[in-house]
Design a protein around this nucleic acid. Structure first.
Length: 587
RNA sequence: CGGGGCGUAGCGCAGCCUGGUAGCGCGUUUGCUUGGGGUGCAAAAGGUCUGGGGUUCAAAUCCCCACGCUCCGACCA
């Protein structure tokens, strides 16, 4: 093995690059971006939800990180690096050891102390802020890091989209007041818009639920894609956009007064009909005439929730509506105890636990529901007359066709990939960790107001590919392309061609364009296929044919035809097109 | 956590039902060939058939257990 490498060969050559492309479709991948990342040699799987970044993938990842750093710094955030390994006590202090518990990796050190691998860093950073920030003079302060997170995903899938270990940029703002926190929030929101634009991603901010993280307001940045895991509700006539978890709908017009009084409640035998479909079929009525009665456990206590028979209960909305900490579906035992009937025969009439109903059920008459008795339902249910409703709220999962809550428009559903999330947290964590400061007015210490802001860095990288590709491979935006130029040495045994390639390579590198020379002893077809697959924005073909006319051929990835460009002008051509493309992304 | 599927060469798979010599394609190595969209020919290397136990003269194959992966569902920043 020769170890002294001639200096002119320090540029990247395919033969030295560990880029192993796969001709066949990897079986482990389902969506296009995942297949392409494997086929193009960006990543390799180690285990479920665990991936190694190969050199080509790491180059792209670093470019995404760089864009994020530049924009976070520009927005005034300070970069720090916190431990991934954290004492469990911190999580007890915030109460999230319980709420996020199953999703966290836990371990013990040799002293038998319980540790967690951080799925996020609100606890650590708030503890830090509580110690380091004492005065209003130090505020506002936004801290961020780019770091590996760990989540014990039930079902990792789609490569980097949902992994057990992934890289996240997380930022946290601390402010003297709610108003000041709004300014910090807006600064991050604006930074996110720029970051994703620079990555070549089309994103759409949508209103979102805050989930376990807590807090009162948040936006998700979604990449619209068929393969997305999240359902997004969009209005067809105004700017309303929300995650399905959060989406609201316009209350129905007030129901027309019933023409005749509802007949008295009447029990009907419905042997072994436990599902809405079965009851509807058995009684020969539409599912929408049924009232679905769902028993939930809210902060440890059973409640009944009513929705139309053809709708689905939205648990996060229920949690928000009731101001509860936790909401889950009741198990069979609880249901039997609360209703006195086996699962499938619950109804609002005669229940002693609190009953909440979806707003669409206000004034509902002549409905069908369970009778709280085995194999029995009731008809002619009049909600006001026969049940005691504690409160009406908007509780159902919004669907295509529902009315927009902001205007007269109609809502539709699309799919998206969540790449970023910004939250206004309020004081949930700063209170728990005693993050207080002395204000200009003096007096008692005040609690800081907090916000938090995440970007799934590895997920963003994959989202770029999901959104920018064709049948032949990846189409990298210039800003995150592992290599900007793929320089194909078509005739490796032709001295003149080799010399041309050497010169182009050196000049391009000198001007800051990352170039990869395909110097393999392969047939042209192989090189063309691979160049398309790995998706360099510009492909330069140096072969004896064009060189005989003093030219190389240049093609933008995605363009149909290539251009003959004189060798002497090639570098200029590439630099100009590169700058223009970059400019277009930077806005 | 509930329901299915799969573990055989680096990757993708056949063989298993009906027990008896472990195979194909891609990739890799070597030689020749070809030389502008995954060339053709030839040769070669590469296997504890996921692990353990059982049945049998004999197990990749049949039975039991474990582990791993995966798909659907429920859950999730």
């Amino acid at each position: 093995m020769q170890h002294s490498v001639p200096i002119q060969e320090l540029f990247m050559r395919w033969t030295r690059s560990l880029i192993n492309t796969l001709r066949e479709e990897p079986q482990e991948a389902e969506i296009a971006s995942h297949k392409l990342m494997l086929r193009a040699g960006l990543i390799r799987r180690l285990g479920g939800g665990l991936y190694t970044f190969l050199p080509l993938g790491l180059r792209a990842l670093r470019k995404v990180e760089r864009i994020i750093r530049e924009e976070m710094n520009r927005a005034g955030a300070l970069e720090i690096l916190m431990p991934a390994l954290q004492p469990a006590e911190l999580w007890e202090q915030s109460g999230r050891l319980e709420t996020m518990g199953p999703g966290m990796f836990r371990l013990r050190d040799r002293g038998d102390r319980t540790m967690v691998l951080g799925p996020t860093h609100e606890e650590v950073v708030t503890d830090l802020a509580a110690r380091e920030i004492n005065s209003y003079r130090q505020l506002p302060c936004t801290l961020y890091q780019i770091q590996t997170k760990f989540r014990d995903e039930i079902r990792p899938r789609f490569g980097l989209m949902r992994a057990k270990e992934f890289i996240m940029k997380d930022a946290y703002s601390f402010d003297v007041s709610l108003d000041a926190a709004d300014v910090s929030y807006q600064a991050m929101y604006d930074a996110y818009v720029r970051i994703f634009a620079r990555c070549g991603l089309k994103t759409r901010p949508v209103e979102a639920d805050t989930g376990d993280i807590g807090g009162n307001w948040s936006h998700e940045f979604m990449v619209m894609a068929e393969a997305g895991e999240d359902a997004i509700i969009l209005c067809d006539s105004c700017a309303y956009a929300a995650n399905q978890e959060r989406a609201e709908r316009r209350p129905a017009e007030s129901a027309p007064a019933p023409s005749a009084p509802t007949p008295p409640l009447e029990e009907v035998a419905t042997p072994d009909t436990r599902t809405i479909e079965a009851v509807a079929a058995f009684l020969g009525c539409p599912a929408s005439q049924l009232v679905k009665t769902i028993i939930c456990v809210v902060d440890g206590k059973p409640v009944a929730v009513l929705v139309d028979g053809d709708r689905e209960l939205n648990l996060p909305k229920l949690r928000r509506a009731l101001g509860a900490r936790s909401v889950e579906l009741a198990d069979d035992e609880v249901i039997v105890k609360a209703t006195g009937a086996p699962v499938g025969f619950a109804g609002p009439a005669g229940l002693t636990i609190p009953v909440y109903a979806d707003q669409a059920l206000r004034g509902a008459t002549d409905r069908v529901s369970g009778a709280n008795r085995a194999d029995t339902h009731v008809r002619h249910l009049d909600l006001e007359r026969d049940a005691k409703i504690a409160a009406y709220h908007d509780l159902v999962v919004v669907d295509a066709g529902d009315g927009c809550p902001r205007c007269r428009g109609t809502l539709g559903v699309k799919r998206g990939i969540e790449v970023g999330h910004v939250f206004k947290l309020g004081t949930k964590y700063t209170q728990a960790f005693g993050a207080r400061f002395l204000s200009e007015q003096g007096g008692a210490a005040e609690t800081m107001v907090m916000g938090c802001y995440g970007i799934g860095v590895t997920r963003t990288l994959q989202a770029v590919i999901e959104q920018s590709r064709d049948d032949d491979g990846i189409i990298w935006p210039v800003s995150v392309a592992p290599y900007v130029v793929a320089l194909l040495l078509l005739d490796p045994r032709d001295a003149a061609v080799c010399e041309t390639v050497r010169q182009l390579e050196a000049e391009l590198e000198a001007r800051g364009l990352d170039v990869l020379v395909d110097d393999r002893d392969e047939r042209p077809g192989v090189k063309f296929k691979d160049a398309d697959l790995i998706g360099a924005p510009f492909r330069v073909v140096a072969g004896s044919k064009a060189l005989a006319r003093g030219c190389v051929e240049i093609r933008s990835r995605g363009a149909r035809a290539s251009e003959l460009v004189p060798v002497g002008e090639a570098v200029e051509w590439l630099e100009q097109h590169y700058r223009e493309a970059l400019q277009a992304l930077n806005g």
